[in-house]
Amino acid sequence: MKGLEIIINEQGIPLNETIDVGHKIACELINKDEKVIKYGVIIGSAMRLIMPGEHVHLSNLQSDYIDSHTRTGVISQSKILGNQT
């Protein structure tokens, strides 16, 4: 829920947006091009600086292997093509 403060690694982090079930937020600051870790493994690279508590998704994380597609666009090479959300 937006405005809620959650505790990660004993630190309070305020949420700036409502996060849907199954979506993910950054536990700590992630620099541009830094590898993003989930399940203890790399799931891609940061496309830009990501703040703690920020929603990590198509606007700031890209695959190191292959493009991700939405119904209206493609996420590739740090560019967002098409009118995706």
Partner: peptide, 12 residues
């Protein structure tokens, strides 16, 4: 596309 709507971002 539904994978992304459900919170998954990358193939890996």
């Amino acid at each position: 596309p539904g994978n992304a709507e459900g919170g998954l971002t990358t193939q890996e």
